[in-house]
Amino acid sequence: MQIYVCVKHVPDSAANIHILDGIRIDEKVAFLLNPYDEHAVTEAAALKKKVQDSEIIAVCLGKPDAQKTIRSAMAMGADRGILVETDEACDSMTTARALHAAIVQDGSADIIFTGKESIDSEGMQTQFRIGALFSFPVVTNAASLDISSETAVVTCELSGGRTRSFELALPCVVGAGRGLNTPGYPTFPDVVKARKKPIKTVSMDSLSITPAAGFAKTVSLTPLVQKRHPKKITGTPADQAKEIIRILRQEAKVLA
């Protein structure tokens, strides 16, 4: 099988984010493989173990520095990588077009894995756009996956403990959720091996993408500061409980 995995290079969720000129973030923070995409790579590696003669290709749209994320994906099992290089911040319509074009140029996908969302832009949509460009069926927030020769049976999580199981014709796009598997830390030999695996770099221009009719543009970024001024509730536990109930009734007006 040709297994493609879309991996995004994102700031660490624990990083302090500083905003520059009210429009972009200071990129001098630790970047890593988008956590949901770790689940995607882990699933691809499990699939490769089951299906003989499979190849895993990690595909990323990003700045040259995003090579690091492709290396992480390789340490977790990807055989080679494709970096579509751009210095622009792309919206998800352009991103999906670039990833689609890079995959088409490279080979023929039997399955494409993505994460359910990227933790920086929190777009929740690239997987559906890739699917629409290929006319492949798409599921998101996958929690289990079973592949037979022609189809994929996937269980997806809605929130609230609800699930849906689908049978998808292959090729298809699977957006990985947290329930899908437990990514392991790569071993040192895996990391060393990953350094020798090939990464193909393609420029955005060489893909000659037809732009979408519409677009999304970030017009400003502001830190989400908390304007909260904590007040202390004191006294015995009984006093404290009484005061909480008063606040719920009189201030928040959520209790009768």
Binding site: P11, S13, N16, I17, I19, I25, I119, D120, S121, E122, M124, A212, A213, G214, F215, A216, K217, T218, V219, S220, L221, T222, P223, L224
Partner: peptide, 25 residues
Amino acid sequence: IARTSQYSGKVLADIQLTGDVVIFG
């Protein structure tokens, strides 16, 4: 223009959509 949170809720982003149809969740 939509206001949404990004970067694990650390940033508020204002995003402007242009197109024949625009969609907001």
